[in-house]
Amino acid sequence: MAKGVEISTNEQLYVLESLKQGFRTDGRKLDEARQPNITLSPTEYGYVEIEWGLTKLAVRVSAEIVAPYEDRPFEGLFMINTEISPMASAQFENGKNSDDEILISRLIEKAIRRSNALDLESLCIVAGSKVWQIRADINFLNYDGGIIDASSLGVMVALQHFKKPDISINGEDIIVHSIDERQPIPLSILHVPICISFLFFNPVGIEENIKGDLNEEISIIDANQQEELLRDGSLVITINKNRDLIQLSKNGGLPIDVMLLMQLAKKAYVIADNLTDKIKDLLQADEKERYERMNLKLLEVGADR
């Protein structure tokens, strides 16, 4: 059990018993995910705040020009930085990387960086010497479960919202135009991976789980902190709108049946599909709002000046 957060036996039994009856303590159904609340910064490109139930985090995307790796001269760099501080919850220690934290950052990394969600080749300015480095910093403000889901969503929204300054190349020199001078350029996103996490509870004994024919394991979507502390096993599914699984990760824990896994993957797809649409609408609305506020209409070709 995590340090600093204790759950009494009474509470433990109560949560498990209510799950058996199909209820959750916060009134959701077993397969109901919380609806995230996404706030885009009206002034800055690439700053996003996500409220996922009580879980809250902020993502800031920034860009700078650096030299590429020697073995990959045509590719830009992309880093995701996750540092979990005790501000989020007492169970995270400052400066010390616990296994849980490494697992979290590794999962986010695999979901977004390894799956090539961001097109790195489009970040190249001069092959072998100058490329853009995109950096996503995640700040965890409050923790109430679902940290992987929320941070991967946050990074993806922030990447789509971010715009890098326009540049022009003049021989060896590179001129970076400020945002006021020229319209900044959005990043090229290849696909939008969405992480959905599931938790498993074992209502019967472990012998029944391994030898029994009935599959009575309870699975819930998007758990809160209390449920996360009491879990017997967990699974993270990352999927995108194209019905591609990006990653599946069940790091040990309670053995679960394959049929259950297939069902969960299908559920995850429905949620990911809805979320992707929601993000798209939100970004479009933001774009429109900026367009009107900044009077970009005046810049369009054929505008009546």
């Binding site: 390894r114 799956s115 789980n209 019905r243 699984l245 790091n251 053995p255 049946d257």
Partner: peptide, 16 residues
Amino acid sequence: SEKLALLLLEDKMPLD
């Protein structure tokens, strides 16, 4: 059994 104790997929795979 057909129960999975661990599962790890790191690259893209079509759901179907």
